[in-house]
Design a protein around this nucleic acid. Sequence first.
DNA 1: ATGTCCGTAACCTACGGA
Length: 257
Amino acid sequence: MRIATWNVNSVGARLPRLLDWLDTRQPDVAALQETKCADAGFPFEALAERGYQSLHVGDGRWNGVAVVSRVGLTPVATALPGLTEPRYAVADCGGLRVTSVYVPNGRSIEDPQYPYKLEWLATLRASLEDLDPAAPQVMMGDFNIARTDADVWDIAAFAGSTHVTPPERDALESLVAWGLTDVVARPGKNDHPYTYWDYRAGRFHQDLGMRIDYVLSAGVRVTDAYVDREARKGKLPSDHAPVVVDLELASLTNEHR
DNA sequence: ATGTCCGTAACCTACGGA
């Protein structure tokens, strides 16, 4: 099974590129973030023409997440308890539980969005308590956290900034500690693991990026993973690149025990 | 480099957010 996560930065603005990307990459399941549309504006039909069912949660201008699947899709959830912004969608797809997350940015440490981000992450962590770490599942999306100093282009440039603070990193580690594996992409062009490059200042061209998009897996066997830098190139790209992962469901083997 | 791109509101330009 091929899965992927991609912050598209508006599914409306990105639709031609999204459809081209689906045609060429052929993911079975994709988690999308920052769709920036209400449910009525989501391109259900264009995706259905390509064989994909979609679960989308969005309310318009900001945020918005989706799970799209061509191996079956049963909706499970579209919100975390007490958190109303459309940043979380869960669906069962072909035996794999798929969660698409768009973690709040946090803006700055002094901003109320920063404690909100930490609260959001704590709620996300709490949501795992009801799950079985042995069951096939992936939680993937834009976490807006660089897990290590090597996950940003210059840690000195992030002094006093969000995305690299210990509380944010601790929250990400707590997800991993529950039993999720951080799927590391195979080395790319410059051996940097980045998934996001700011539109400004030629950051992509200089490969001054950040790894803030993750695929966290459990109960699966990963056979390949890469950052799809090609999708970040050219005219009017998203500022994020997709992460594409090939995997097998471990539980299918277990059923034969 | 304050560097770009998004949607929206309001009306072709400004703004918040990222």
